[in-house]
């Protein structure tokens, strides 16, 4: 069980494919146990609805909580800004929006299984490399990843 009073990360995946990417991330041998993947929301708008209804007040209660909203960008540049509109200003530094430019199925067709990709993503985070995050279907996350690297990496790899 994560300790809510210590820095921890919750991942809210849009769908089953994103859940499996997150599973791969969890399987990185050096990853902290202070990470929890939540139930699939069932669509990117439902991720935002769920965040608003279930997590905004809880994040105020638990100041050591950070969240990743794992959504598909469906090839739309505006998706990040759309997602950020639901994040209250006081939580903006603790919430990150990440995802595949189109959808994870496209990434799987190129890079292999979801768990393998997820593990490689975690390895990039740990090593501060961009072997996987630099892929054309993931590199649009660069600004969020930079924030994540500064703020969340110490939680992920203690």
């Amino acid at each position: 069980m994560i300790n809510r009073y210590k820095p921890h990360l919750l991942v809210l995946p849009e769908d089953d494919a994103n859940r499996q990417l997150a599973n791969g991330f969890l399987l990185h041998p050096s990853l902290s146990t202070q990470v929890q993947v939540l139930e699939v929301a069932g669509g990117w708008t439902k991720v935002l609805d769920c965040f608003r209804s279930d997590h905004v007040s809880a994040m105020a209660t638990y100041p050591n909580r950070t969240m990743v909203l794992l959504i598909d960008f469906d090839g739309r540049q505006v998706r990040l800004e759309q997602a950020k509109t639901v994040i209250p200003d006081n939580l903006k530094d603790r919430v990150f929006v990440l995802g595949v430019w189109t959808e994870p199925e496209a990434l799987r067709a190129i890079l292999g299984s979801y768990e393998k990709i997820g593990r490689a993503m975690a390895e990039d985070c740990r090593e501060e490399t961009a072997a996987t995050w630099g892929h054309e279907l993931l590199r649009h996350n660069a600004s969020e990843m930079e924030r994540l690297r500064r703020q969340v990496r110490p939680i992920l790899f203690q």
């Binding site: 089953d16 859940r19 499996q20 599973n23 791969g24 969890l26 993947v37 139930e39 699939v40 299984s113 979801y114 768990e115």
Partner: peptide
């Protein structure tokens, strides 16, 4: 069940 993936 959610902590496994389709491949396994």
């Amino acid at each position: 069940i959610r902590r496994f993936s389709d491949e396994n």
